[in-house]
Each structure stands twice: as C-alpha cells, then as structure tokens.
Computed example of a mutant assay.
Amino acid sequence: MKRIGVLNVGGDCPGLNAVIRALIVKGAHEDVEIVGVYDGFMGLVEDKMSILAKEHVSGRLPEGGFVLGSSKYDPTANPDDLKKLKDNFSKYQITSLILLTGHTGTNIALKLADEGIPSVIIPATIDNDLNWTDLSIGYLTALQTVSDALDRLHSTASAGHRVIVVEVGGDESGWLAIIGGMVGGADYIITPEVEFVPTQLIDNIKRRYDIGRRFSLVVVEEKVKLPEEIKNIVKDPKIRSYMRPSELVAEYINENFENIECRTVNLDYLQRAGTPTSFDRYLAFKFGFSAIEAVKKGKTNIALGLKGFDVVETPYNKEILKNKEVDIEIYKMAELFF
C-alpha cells in the first residue's frame, strides 16, 4: 500500500476540502492511504498527522477554509526542522506529499525535492498566477466574490454619488482585478500588467460626472506599483508605509475633486472564504483523482495543471516559479467599458 501526506501550504482558498474528499475516495479505490498533515509543513515537523477516512470530510464539501489548517512555514529555512521533517517522512513511510498550494509551496517543493522528499503539486490559489495551469482551485470562487461585491457596491455608489475604490487580491497578477473588474462593471482598473497614468483616472471620473454618471467604481490590485505622484500624496513616509494601494489612490482622488466623496473597500480575506463554486469543486475532484493516479504509477516531483479540460503534468523546474500575467488583450476588453 502506498501512503501520501496531504497539506495546504500558503493561504487557504475555496475548494480545498473538496480536494481532500476526492483524495480519500480515490485513494480507497486505488489502495492508497491518505495522511492528513495539520497546519502545512508545521505538521510534518511537529508530528501532527492522522490517517484520514471518509467520515473526516463528511458534510465538508460546501465549506470554505480547510479542515487540516494551513501555514506558509518553510521547513528548509531551519536545518533542525528539515531533519525532523525527513525523520517523520521516513517514520510514517510516506510515499509522496500532495501539496495544495500556489507559489509559496511550489518554491518549497523544489527545495525539498533536492533533499529527497518527493511531492505532487495541486494548484490551489485565488491568484490564478501559476504559469503551468489555466486555472487554479479557488480562483473562480474568488472571482465570483469580486463580481458580487462590485454588483452590491454599484447601488450605494450611485445613491451617494460616491467614488468607491475596491482593492482585490492577486499577489502580483491581475486575474482577479481585470476579469473581476470587467464582469463586475468597474469604471477603471489599476493592475500590475498595465502602466497606471493617474491623470487618465481623474479624466475618467470627471467625464462620467459631466455626463450625469455621478459615481465610479475603481478596482485596484493589491500589489500594484503606484507612481510617485500617487504615493507622495501622503507626505509622512511612516503613515504612507502603512497605507494600502486603494487608500493611496483614494487620497489622490480626494485631492483632485472638492465635491466628490471617495471611500475604500478592501475585499481581503472575503476572497478566500465562502462556498466553492461548482467548477472549483469539479477541479478539486479532477486534480485529486489525477494526483492519486500519478502516485500510484510512481510519478512524483510534478505539478498538475489544467490545459483546456485536460490535466497535464509538468516536471519540477525553475520555470514553474515564474508569475503568470494576464494577457494585455483581456485588459483591453475591460478598458472598452471604462
């Protein structure tokens, strides 16, 4: 019997419990035992693991979060912890680790592979910024959260004649900002893939007010690099260092309009929460089954990805650490609605 250890490394996302369910069901069919590792790699270091059965995930399918917990801890940063991890990996006779993760876990997986600890990656991140897969588990649910939030904010922005600056996730890619902003009816989108020209934002808002559209929704990606003109709107560098990009953009808007009320909304952890969409659950099942099949065949040190509707395998290499940016043509689609 083969035995795999499953863990979430990095931030949680909707659909993780569905992956566990798929691993347990497929594992039982293929005579593969599933070991749940609690709180990311901390569980392997601190010996916090348990054999999982169907009852552990009964009723969990529609839940967000993750029944095993998660963390970003990197065991390769501490030689003593790395040794403990190796000892527990050997003690429990684990064949391979299954990592539900984005860039954080991918980076660790490559380092552990060099240390003789094999793994298989299932892409799970709301950022959808992994270059070996079209979609990651959790992205579509987070995208729906962004779209729903913008739908709701339209009414209050319109009623109060406000500008509302909405900050969304994405790490350093605009998959949530651009597509979420477009389908949610954003009036301007600020994202890492496109140079931000502050005067264009101001002109856009002014034009809307001049034609009677006395409100605007501005979407800002969480790690966008803002020009000095925006950052320097707050003179105190200490205060500025604590401000979110959305807050700096809002300050800039307030400075350029006397009679327009500007407010901010940061969707933050709301994007990681909630019931996974149907397709995120389907992805979870598809990736979970494929991971079991790969381990059963002796395949490890691979990243599973979706290309079209097919699961593909990418061997570990430095290229998979690169960021997947949004095609500029998608932004141009969104821009036509500004």
Rank of each mutant, 00 (worst) to 15 (best):
L110D: 03
K111F: 08
A113M: 11
D114N: 03
S119D: 05
V120L: 10
V120C: 05
I121Q: 09
I122N: 00
T125A: 02
I126K: 12
D127I: 05
D127M: 08
D127K: 11
N128Y: 15
N131D: 13
W132L: 15
W132P: 11
L135D: 07
L135A: 13
S136Q: 13
I137V: 13
G138P: 03
G138V: 07
G138C: 08
Y139K: 03
L140R: 14
T141F: 15
Q144H: 09
T145H: 14
T145K: 15
T145D: 08
S147W: 02
S147P: 04
S147G: 09
L150M: 04
L153D: 10
T156K: 09
T156V: 07
A157R: 09
A157E: 14
A157P: 09
S158V: 04
S158N: 14
A159T: 14
A159V: 12
G160C: 05
H161L: 02
R162G: 02
R162L: 04
V163H: 12
I164T: 07
V166R: 02
G169S: 13
G170E: 01
G170T: 01
G170V: 05
G170R: 13
G170S: 02
D171K: 10
D171G: 14
E172G: 06
G174D: 12
W175T: 01
W175S: 09
W175C: 09
L176H: 12
A177K: 08
I178D: 00
G181C: 07
M182T: 08
M182A: 03
V183T: 07
V183L: 11
G184H: 05
G185Q: 06
D187H: 13
D187E: 11
Y188A: 01
I189M: 03
I189S: 02
I189P: 05
I190D: 00
I190M: 05
P192R: 00
